[in-house]
């Protein structure tokens, strides 16, 4: 074991490999965080479209489009979406997007599909009387949703969103396929340079564990803070 540790230590500290891993950590965090935001945006929009009463034609068309979107992103592996996005779609539109931007987009859209389900259940968990009261007093459907229902829905789903964020952090480990040097790829490259993978991969797993634990704690603190603001006395 000590030979492997020496090799790892050599590349990690002496050859300053830790700089690449720190950079990789920053990229992983960046992709996960911005992906989550985009996911929340898309997810909320889709959830609202699905919740609107479908009397008129427009909500029905939008609802069908949302079904197709969610079906695609939940029905294909994230790696496939990433590869298609980077190697197929972006070149065909002619855009010259940075790899990381593509990754954020893809992860955001993928996350949006899952968040839409979470948000929809969060909205439906809000007492329907809230929406009714909002509409009875003259607010439009969208105003009542935005000001009354969705804020309460978000509070409902906060723990699940924490889980979604954790999932994203772990899912970003595949961006190495489009040559982004994230946390996973950084450690893999240390392994490549030594042809010794045991220590790098173990350390990588520990790093992910620590990150996930920190996020879980963070979510608990935010939850507690929001609950406190409920009990204003």
């Amino acid at each position: 074991m000590s030979r492997e540790w020496e090799l790892f230590y050599n590349k990690f500290i002496v050859y300053e490999g830790y700089k690449t891993t720190l950079n990789g950590l920053a990229l992983t965090a960046e992709i996960a965080v911005f992906g989550l935001f985009i996911g929340m945006l898309i997810g909320t929009l889709i959830a609202v479209v699905k919740v609107v009463p479908k009397y008129k034609l427009l909500p029905r068309i939008l609802s069908k489009i949302c079904d197709i979107y969610v079906g695609f992103f939940r029905g294909t592996p994230i790696v496939v979406q990433l590869l298609i996005g980077y190697f197929v779609l972006i070149p065909s539109i002619g855009l010259n997007l940075d790899k990381v931007a593509v990754a954020i987009l893809v992860f955001g859209m993928n996350s949006g599909a899952y968040v839409s389900e979470i948000m929809r259940s969060g909205i439906q968990a809000v007492d329907p009387g809230q929406l009714e009261a909002g509409r009875a007093v003259g607010l439009s459907f969208s105003a009542a949703m935005a000001k009354i229902v969705i804020p309460q829905a978000i509070k409902n789903i906060l723990p699940t969103m924490g889980n979604e964020f954790i999932s994203l952090i772990k899912e970003t480990s595949v961006v190495g396929y489009i040559a982004i040097v994230d946390l996973t790829k950084a450690f893999r490259q240390i392994g490549d340079s030594n042809y010794e993978y045991i220590i790098p991969y173990l350390v990588l797993a520990v790093v992910y564990l620590v990150i996930v634990m920190l996020i879980t704690q963070g979510v608990k603190i935010i939850e507690r803070g929001l609950k406190k603001s409920d009990r204003h006395n």
């Binding site: 007492d127 009387g129 809230q130 009714e132 009261a133 009875a136 007093v137 009354i148 309460q152 509070k155």
Partner: peptide, 14 residues
């Protein structure tokens, strides 16, 4: 038209 509900339905987040 004002409406008053059996379950009050005050906005909980406000």
């Amino acid at each position: 038209m004002g409406m008053v509900f059996q379950q009050f339905n005050l906005f909980n987040n406000k």
